[in-house]
Design a protein around this nucleic acid. Structure first.
Ligand SMILES: [Mn+2]
Ligand SMILES: [Mn+2]
Ligand SMILES: [Zn+2]
Ligand SMILES: [Zn+2]
Lengths: 145, 145
DNA sequence: AGATAGATTAGATCCATTCTAAACTGTTGA
DNA sequence: TCAACAGTTTAGAATGGATCTAATCTATCT
């Protein structure tokens, strides 16, 4: 196994480790386990409580405080993006590329809109000393009347 | 004064009353006072705590619970719009027309972008049984690097 | 292995918001 | 005009997500 060149999907255990090292974060047992839960299932939008529950189900011993610490550290390191669409709850998005969201308000479901498909034009000019960090578009859907 | 036809600006005390009646809300002392604070100063984005503090300054006796109740009732009645751009705090927008926002993340300042100046194209198709409630665009500005 | 900076944790604390249930008030119609 | 009632207000308690504290643990370096 040692000298082989393999696709990322075939190295599910070393990939999270590389990810943490690249971000300058110590690869602790907790961070590795959470990275695996977060990044091995495609793009996701998870809350801290959700991730904590998933960890418990996966027999990963980790406190809720560490889940919060980790999500915030991952976000600062650019591994996650925080999404605020609902009062009183933060979602963490494993898709850090430029993209937008569709929110089904009735269910709370959040889906991605790839950046390529959607365009925003006519942005106002940016005041001196400031720059655009990002432009968030949220399409809110409700049950048809 | 009785038979005169005047512009809205010249009838600052009857306008909030009409607004409540049209919305089917009893014109109580508290709701009238809050409506006056909210709607007599042009477009605003206020939090419940802010409005409660303003009421106190204006010698209006009203509990924080009533401020929350009133903001939620006004929102349900279409007199206000709830804006969520920051985790853990709701803003209420007196501008209920179709428009978007610019947020200066460093200061928390929230400004309007009139609907006419900005366009979103390439929206994804809406799943069966759902309809677009609205499309929110938030331009996040940060201090230039 | 020992030293140390960094990480984890239980539990406390914070804070915006909602809830409870008792007192109060705007409205209706007798 | 005024009692009756539904709707409203309120203090204070409760809730729930998120953060903080400070004691314990561990990854890393020599
Ligand atoms: Mn945060
Ligand atoms: Mn609300
Ligand atoms: Zn996303
Ligand atoms: Zn606005």
């Amino acid at each position: 196994m040692s000298g082989m060149t393999m696709a990322t999907e075939a190295r599910p255990f070393s990939e999270p480790l590389d990810r943490l090292k690249r971000a300058g974060l110590r690869p602790t047992r907790q961070r590795l386990a959470l990275a695996r839960l977060l990044f091995s299932r495609g793009d996701r939008h998870v809350s801290a409580e959700q991730l904590h529950a998933e960890a418990k189900t996966a027999r990963v011993v980790v406190s809720l405080a560490t889940v919060y610490n980790t999500l915030n550290q991952f976000t600062r390191a650019g591994l996650l993006r925080e999404v605020v669409v609902k009062a009183g709850r933060s979602y963490f998005d494993t898709n850090t590329s430029d993209h937008h969201h569709v929110l089904a308000v009735a269910t709370g479901d959040l889906m991605d809109i790839p950046a390529g498909t959607l365009a925003v034009s006519g942005l106002p000019e940016v005041p001196d000393g400031l720059e655009v960090e990002r432009v968030d578009v949220v399409v809110r859907l409700r049950p048809r009347a």
